[in-house]
Design a protein around this nucleic acid. Sequence first.
RNA 1: GAUCCACUAGCUCAGUAGGUAGAGCACCUGACUUUUAAUCAGGGGGUCCGGAGUUCGAAUCUCCGGUGGAUCACCA
Length: 510
Amino acid sequence: MEVKGRPDPVCPAETDEQPAEQEINEQMRIRLTKLEGLVGQGEDPFEQVEFPVTCYSCDILNDFAALEGQPVAVAGRLMSKRGMGKVSFCDLQDQCGRIQLFTKIDALGADRYAEWQRLDIGDLVGIKGTVFRTQRGEISVKTSGYVLLAKALRPLPEKYHGLRDTETRYRQRYLDLIMNPDVKDTFEKRSLIIRTLRQELDASGFIEVETPILHQIPGGAAARPFVTHHNALDMDLFLRIAPELYLKQLIVGGFERVYEIGRQFRNEGLSIKHNPEFTLLELYQAYTDYKGMMILTEQLIARTALEVQGTTQIEYQGKEIDLTPPFRRLSMTEAILQYTGIDFDQVQTDEAAGELARARELEDYRPVMKRGDVMNLFFETYCEKNLLQPTFIHDYPIEVSPLTKKKPDRPDLTERFELFIDGREYANAYSELNDPLDQRERFAAQLEKRLAGDDEANLLDEDFCVALEYGMPPTGGMGMGIDRLVMLLTDSASIRDVLLFPTMKPLRPS
RNA sequence: GAUCCACUAGCUCAGUAGGUAGAGCACCUGACUUUUAAUCAGGGGGUCCGGAGUUCGAAUCUCCGGUGGAUCACCA
């Protein structure tokens, strides 16, 4: 029914391709045969629809005193088998851990016990039994009956070494989660971190909102966007690179404290700390400024650290980091002076700044750069990597801060900070520019940058400018990369270790 | 996008000077009524990432390609 526009990439045209014949190896064949046998007996495990669980493995381990001798029903995945003939031991894994099962031929009868022994590692079973402690002292469930709830047709990775191969871990994360408890722990902590942020913000009077992901003009950050297409409207849309311009319209609308935790999309390369889609917290608070944002940022980070690690003195990749507020505050000018000996307050012109960059042979220097661009370049080149302990770098040059209020006494600088920890940026905040006339000038300056070849420069967003013309109160705003915060608080080296399904190339080129 | 490293059984890994491919776990058969990486005996299982080349002969050497990891560049 396509009338115009591009073919829908989600529904590719029919091709001659046959679905690839599924490769059946020996192990799968044996398990399929077992399944056929069960189905033949009228015991198709996939017909099971429910199993009333009375407790989890960890409940039994934690409340053994109360549960000893009591009947329980548990369900989960068989992770190991230790058959001893007419008696056998298995480990059952559920959401919170593992519990040993002890099964005797006497309890099931010879036929049922034989079926029990034919179960495979990986099968999902529901168990009824009683809680007891074995002769060796291990808290266990003595099986009195079981139901096979799903058959595993593929074997799990090896029980001792587990799953190591990073590619398989990322591509088949479920296997990683089954086999590696630490991985599961990381993602539980990720959930806890995001929950804690919500709790803190909700308790401070913020409301959580949702703004569009499909943007007509990708704004609020300097980045290349992903493009998509709306067929009915026959127009290109962009996946958002930041929610900023919408959130500030809500401040105009009278929501005085708003936040959004959501996915942003930037069309950049992948690295140990970059994924094309990532999660950002952005918040805006009326009647405060970037100094207010510093205090809020410190609180949020310290609070999540306490929640996840129980302390604000943490270790990240072997480095001791103290997240106890207040964090160090250093202006960008001070930072550059400290690490290079250059005082940018003495650099008056674009030409003088360019001279400095050329003298240092800075590769990223471009002749179109203005004084503030060069200052930012010096900071990135010489300072960032040295900032191990949390540090607010404040007073950014106006050239790189198109949405930020000027400092009242310094029109070349803005009321903006970024938070650095271990050389990485964790947060970006400012006193939001609410002067609509100034805002239009800033967009004009960005347009100049774009014409000079910077395809990441901000685009004029007319809807946003109109909103400012109705009046926005003085407002502080802050954005924080959640994935990086999770990395920090879970001691993860790579962003892929805190994303359940990191972006991967397809296995075969299509 | 550039450089370096990796890819061998379902998993974790060995692999001789270039001479028909190995172990452990898992799986199958048998033994075993309190084990816990259970044990013991026997057995089956491979597109050595893909393609081309060198060679009498390639998992191994060369080239091209794929995927992953690390570093660099852009960014958060």
